[in-house]
Amino acid sequence: MAKFLSEEAVAKYKRDGYHFPIDVLSASETRELRDRLEAHEAQSGGPIQGDRRHKAHLYLTWLNDLIRHPRIVDAVEDVLGPDLLCWSTSFFIKEPSDPGFVSWHQDATYWGLSSPDVMTVWVAFTPANLVNGCMKFMPGSHLVQLEHRDTFDKDNLLSRGQEIAVKVDDSKGVAVVIEPGQASLHHVLLAHGSAPNKSTDRRIGFAIRYIPTHVRQAVGTKDSATLVRGRDLYNNFEHEPRPTADCAPDALAAHAAIVGRQVQILYRGTGEAHFRP
């Protein structure tokens, strides 16, 4: 029996490759998350970027709490089962009137994971709508792997500027319009993308990637992940430490080492050594 999602929602996810919205946080909780992020950015001297945008839950305690949030993990369990790892997280932030965009792509193409049993939970810290560049999903596209090409476009927010190599009919995309504190769920093979932010405020989203413990890293060195629910009987991933304080020296060191390994996986074959700014 499902813990959070209805049977209809689970069926829709399996049929279309996505489901939204789900209500995760209250307005005050979401405002606190944005305030924490922007206080961290102020202390760090500017917007979070580069390597720091990725797996920030390894050095920020409040994000480590968020990846374990019962409403989020309950929804993931309804689809992927009770033994769950958080494989990675990323901030997708579009500044006001910024040209940054996300090309149509499928996440599975470069992640190197052994199975498509992977879900992204995209949590909105601000509204996501057509004006500020919300995601668009292509229903049913998770059923086939498409060819991709790397562009390294300077305005593309993806690691390699990757895009689907065939033309995608943007008019068939479903706009993922959600409010602060809501989240969307999507399959690792679902084609998705987003346009630039044409509004006067930031568009802030936090993407959390979950996998069942049976999944393994199929390329490169042994990978790491955070156990968020159940038991790990497979030990395919090194278990990541939980930060004891925000930006603690040991947490920052662990983050740097872990992200350095993930860069090698995501950028394999390109010669890149860091996430793009």
Rank of each mutant, 00 (worst) to 15 (best):
Q262F: 09
R203A: 07
H214N: 12
T270S: 06
L233G: 11
Q217N: 01
T244G: 07
R268N: 05
G205N: 12
H274E: 09
A254R: 02
A225K: 15
S194I: 12
I258R: 13
L227D: 04
E238G: 01
P249R: 07
H214Q: 11
N235Y: 01
A256E: 10
G193Q: 04
P212A: 11
A257D: 13
A195P: 02
V259A: 04
G220K: 10
Q262G: 02
I211D: 03
D250Q: 11
H239P: 00
V259S: 01
P249D: 07
G220H: 15
R276W: 05
R261V: 15
H214C: 09
A256W: 07
D250Y: 11
D232G: 11
S194Y: 11
T244L: 12
A256M: 05
R276G: 01
E238N: 05
A245W: 10
D232I: 08
V219T: 15
Q264G: 13
H274S: 15
R276I: 01
R242W: 04
G205K: 12
A273Q: 10
V215S: 00
K198G: 01
N197W: 08
V263L: 14
H192E: 06
G193E: 02
A207H: 03
E238C: 00
I208P: 07
R261K: 12
V228E: 03
G193T: 00
Q262T: 14
F275K: 13
N197R: 14
P241V: 06
A256G: 11
V228K: 00
I208K: 04
R276C: 00
F206R: 14
R202N: 05
H192D: 06
N236W: 14
H192K: 02
Q217E: 10
G193W: 05
T200I: 12
T244R: 13
D223P: 09
P241K: 02
R202I: 14
Y267G: 06
Q217I: 06
T213W: 04
C247P: 04
R229D: 05
V263E: 13
S224K: 14
H239L: 10
P249H: 07
I258V: 13
G205F: 07
R231T: 15
S199V: 02
D246H: 07
G193Y: 01
Y267D: 12
V219W: 09
E272Y: 07
T244P: 01
A251I: 10
V259M: 12
R261P: 15
A251P: 09
Q264T: 15
H239T: 03
V219Q: 04
D223I: 06
A225H: 08
H255T: 05
G230Y: 13
Y210Q: 06
N236V: 02
Y210H: 05
H239D: 04
T221Q: 01
C247L: 03
D232A: 13
P241S: 05
K222Q: 15
V228Y: 00
L233S: 11
E272I: 08
R203T: 02
L233Y: 12
D232W: 07
A256K: 10
L227R: 13
D223N: 15
A248C: 06
A251G: 08
V219N: 12
V215A: 00
G230P: 10
R229L: 13
G260M: 14
P241T: 08
Y267Q: 08
A251Y: 06
E272N: 08
S194Q: 15
V228W: 04
G205V: 04
Q264V: 13
